[in-house]
Design a protein around this nucleic acid. Sequence first.
DNA 1: ATCCTCCCCTAC
DNA 2: TAAGGTAGGGGAGGAT
Length: 841
Amino acid sequence: MKEMLTAENAVEGSETEDFGDNDEDEELYGIDEQDKSDPTSTLQMTNTLEATTSTNVTDDTLFKKPSTSSLPKAGDANFVSEFYNNSRLHYLSTWGAEFKKYTSDIIKSCAAKGWKCRGTGRAGPHGRVIMHIDMDSFFVSVTLRDQPHLRGKPIAVCHAGKNNSSTDQVSTSNQQTSPNKPSSFFNSMSEIASCSYEARATGVRNGMFLGAARKLCPEIYCVPYQFDQYRQVSQSLYDILVTYSHEIEAVSCDEAYIDVSETLEEGETPTQLAEKIRAEIKEATRCIASVGIASNVLLARMCTRVAKPDGCYYLGPADDINKFMGPQKVKDLPGVGWSLGHKLQTLGVETCLELQKFSSQALQREFGPKTGLVLYQYCRGIDDRALRTERERKSVSAEINYGIRFTKESEMELFINELAEEVQKRLQALDMKGRCITLKMKVRKAGAPTPKKFMGHGICDNIARSCTLPTVTDQAQVIAKQCHALLKQLSVTPEDMRGMGIQVSKLTDKNAGTSAKNSRSLFDFLKPQTTDNEVVAGPTALDREAGNEGENSYRSMSESPKHEENKLPPLPRFSPQFAQQTRESEAETNLGDLGESLYLPSPSQIDPAVFEALPEYIRRSIEKSYATRNQRISLNRTGKQEEEDPEPQRLPRRKTTKSKHGKTASKPSRILFEENSLTEAAACHRTSELLPSPSQIDPEFLAALPDDAPPERSTERNTMKFQAGDVQKKEGIQAITPPKQACLGEAVSLSEVKKVISDWTEAYEVPLEEDIEVFNEYLFQLIATQNLEQLWRVLKFLDRRIEGREDWSSVCCAVLDHIQQALNQKYNSKLSVNSLKFSNR
DNA sequence: ATCCTCCCCTAC
DNA sequence: TAAGGTAGGGGAGGAT
Ligand SMILES: Nc1ccn([C@H]2C[C@H](O)[C@@H](COP(=O)(O)OP(=O)(O)OP(=O)(O)O)O2)c(=O)n1
Ligand SMILES: [Mg+2]
Ligand SMILES: [Mg+2]
């Protein structure tokens, strides 16, 4: 299926030279030249354009500037928008994100209104029922709605091929077979976005180059893109799906999972429901969807393959999952693409049954803990993923790797400006800002020939470099400025530039402005619970309007692009019902936060030298004050960006990566075949696990102490060791003598405190003095309650949040000084703060 | 052990 | 000609 496409892409995208591709390149180029010399319309067009242009342009460098219909170079007037307007992949990404937001907003909206979004009740007699709905050859189907005469023929949607097909009045079959095809006919590098099932029967696949497809199917007929219509059909699709379940994961504009476990009515089978949905989609869109149904996401996905085209397939509880999965190709498993598939192939693994022969340990050893486990489970049809109904955005980017041909530095900079504008637009549309800026570029690989594809990027190295700003931003100017600096560091020959992109990450929470919220004080953040009145207040006001409440309130929350008449939530199959939505959302928020990651006990309550009992990495940071200072001077080099030249560091790493992915890595090690040899590693782990919890601490602790420790304390430390062990074993003791806890507002646990700090540092460009006092007080409480572990973690977290922010850093430095004094007084020692960036400015 | 950063990989 | 984007998962390897 898509493997071929993937493979081709991977080949060119990867850094490896190899494959006879280069030869092909040469050939293609020869051919292209011929084409140009051929007095066809193309050449004439070009000439005409140039002629027209040259009238008003005398400068030679501007000679090619005014390309109206062609799209070289970035400098051209509407290059970026022109490109995006014609980029299917851009639309695909954009729409995917839009529909994820659309479904997610509906869920929120309904929750706010007390609609039942997630059944409290049990699943029906069929257990968990997941449906995967996917439109059949989506782009093609949309076009075929109004071109019924093309049905049953091999059709492809792509940019090129108009000469051969659409322009012509000639029947489809004529042109292909005619021998006078220019050889460029089979060399078109235009990508097929979608092809009909008739075309697939010949081996053509989505993503293939048109030329390659024509070799398989010379009579393939090309139709142009109709982006507006795709978008409309997608909207209709989602409007329908949302009606059947609110437990919905949008995958792309033509594809989603829905959990219908509780949607099924009495006596209704999953297949019946699926057919009903299919019929409704067909009715509304005149396009066909296929549906896979099973008890988990993976199996539903696999079932869709069986179902297509124009069908549905249900793998029920009674069916034999092993029998179903066994014959499946591993490359058809989600997540197995060209790279993984190839590795597996060299292991002789082609089907899931063959993959099942490997132990989980072996697979994890070979592919990593996550990937290994997933492979182990997937090939058995096991998949415990929940539907991802909403997720937080982590980055926003814009990149263009097509049509990039520069000759001057300034052109690159101007293009960066354009990309930065694009990113600003996208950030602002999302109401987000970020502080990490990454410049990505594709650079012609040394020795790489001219790209096969017209204006394509060809064989490239991928280069990326990032920097972190003091404060978040969404400003194109700021972003561009940083990228200019990054670009300079990299010194790329303009002629070799083949693609550029800008990504912004470390995004702020949507609701946290920078300085806009100066009216809020830290004390507001100290009461996290109360802030959620938006959900209640907003709809309440709107709801007063009689029966329209649902629609109104929904619209107010949804930004989903134009769709006028959505008959929203009142799900035919769901009745309104009050739920403890507030609870749920809070719970989820907390979970999503960091709540789970604080497994740490608080070993802090022991008296004299508690901190000696802390884990090594913390204890190591506590040293005699003078010693600390000396060390700090010598180690002072924490600064990460400006001065140091990362190039030498990075190059070797890149090299290893290259060789690894290029060829060597595709050959897996033999480990996989040594099935039962996990004993050694496991034994190691067990040994350490047998020790009491602080096991990691002792050895290095003892070893390290004598060296830098002042004489008078060595005894004390030895004593401490025993106390430490003691403490760990008897946690109960701590509970018996509950000391007062330190708290920052209402925040007590580490995750709560982090949340407060996070909000606080986001909201203020410069901290308020009163807030600093509150915070300072909290830190002193931590010392008083001897919770030095928490103290350290809080400082580390704060450090990360204010990285690069001068105002914050200086203030925090002052706070830290106080803290150090207090510690010095109480423990006769200080924290080693070498790793705190704000203290090393 | 766990985190962070820099990538590669995957999917549509 | 041709429109090779984009976000997240996760592995590798260094820092803590
Ligand atoms: N390499 C690709 C893959 C897909 N698409 C676009 C065109 C497809 O129509 C749409 C949906 O992708 P699918 O994987 O669902 O493929 P189709 O819908 O075309 O076919 P089917 O789902 O029947 O296999 O995404 C694309 O532009 N380029
Ligand atoms: Mg599809
Ligand atoms: Mg799809």
